[in-house]
């Protein structure tokens, strides 16, 4: 019978050594809400499971209005949702974290795990991309940092090399008159994976309602989460009126490359990208105006 070794390192160094020593045969365990299902289904068969939840550095949230947010890769979603600073400054991210599963699941599941699982439908990934989050990675050769929009390569595959471990996210300090929003569409009211997810972040000039900065990210409409750059470029410098919002929606649709599957048709997904982009922009704008 196939046996699995469970390891529980206490430091990033120990974890990296274990992961490096066993290469493809090792898999980090964060919340386990994806990994356990994959073990059961036989889609992943590691010989070593490296539990990273006992590494203190990976379980920390530190926020300052000046430096922004450092979010440990193994912080559970519920802790993110319950953090008053994060709820105030990054409501889109906390909403995304709160959409994942039930309270029990949120107590285990982590934003880091959500990203490393490499699913294009991960709820927190578009929210991170919208915020301009950077992923700090530790590895046998030292550390590196990559933008979250460059982290996923294809379904289930990421930039992490054997031995590498996602350590934390660095998220810029919130600018004045800025905010974010994340919306997803699911056919039921719970229990579903996103058919479409849209994360947006906006910074406005309150004097004339112009867009100073914007980021839009799409989930579940391509092999990886998508950073909709053209939709963003069309917004910056423009007055955020209905026409600008509609245009951003149309350009977001153009960035999507969805497929037909049991969760929805490609045609439907493209349509909903437009709907959610418009709705999320409107929410983020309202929040941005109220943020000062």
């Amino acid at each position: 019978m196939h046996a699995i070794n469970y390891e529980s390192p206490k430091t990033i160094d120990e974890a990296v050594k274990l992961l490096a020593a066993h290469g493809e045969k090792a898999r980090p365990l964060s919340g386990g809400t994806d990994l356990l299902i994959q073990l059961r289904a036989g889609t992943r068969r590691p010989d070593f499971v490296v539990d990273i939840k006992h590494i203190a550095d990976l379980c920390k949230i530190s926020f300052s209005a000046q430096h922004g947010l450092s979010l440990g890769a193994a912080v559970p979603c519920l802790e993110i949702h319950e953090n008053p600073h994060l709820r105030r400054h990054y409501p889109g991210l906390t909403e995304a974290a709160h959409l994942i599963g039930s309270l029990q699941i949120q107590s285990r599941a982590t934003v880091g795990g959500n990203l490393c699982n490499g699913s294009p439908a991960a709820d927190t990934t578009p929210a991170l991309i919208a915020l301009g989050a950077m992923a700090r990675i530790a590895g046998p050769g030292g550390e590196r940092t990559v933008p979250v929009e460059g982290f996923c390569l294809s379904p289930g595959r990421t930039v992490l090399k054997p031995g590498e471990l996602l350590v934390e996210f660095q998220i810029p300090a919130p600018a004045k008159y800025s905010s974010d929003a994340y919306l997803r569409f699911i056919p039921r009211n719970e229990m579903d994976i996103a058919v479409v997810g849209v994360g947006v972040a906006l910074t406005l000039d309150p004097a004339n309602d112009h867009v100073v900065a914007a980021r839009i990210a799409l989930g579940a409409v391509g092999p990886t989460p998508i950073f909709a750059t053209q939709a963003v470029q069309a917004l910056v410098g423009k007055k955020l009126d209905d026409a600008a919002i509609a245009n951003a929606g149309t350009l977001a649709i153009a960035a999507a490359t969805p497929i037909d599957d049991m969760r929805g048709t490609a045609e439907y997904r493209r349509h909903v990208v437009g709907v959610l982009t418009r709705r999320a922009l409107a929410i983020a704008a309202t929040r941005a105006k109220a943020s000062a």
Binding site: R188, E190, D192
Partner: peptide, 16 residues
């Protein structure tokens, strides 16, 4: 069969 699980074989939940 592509939806051989209760995630994608969608029965209503009490929230629906």
């Amino acid at each position: 069969l592509r939806n051989a699980g209760l995630l994608d074989y969608r029965m209503p939940t009490c929230l629906d």
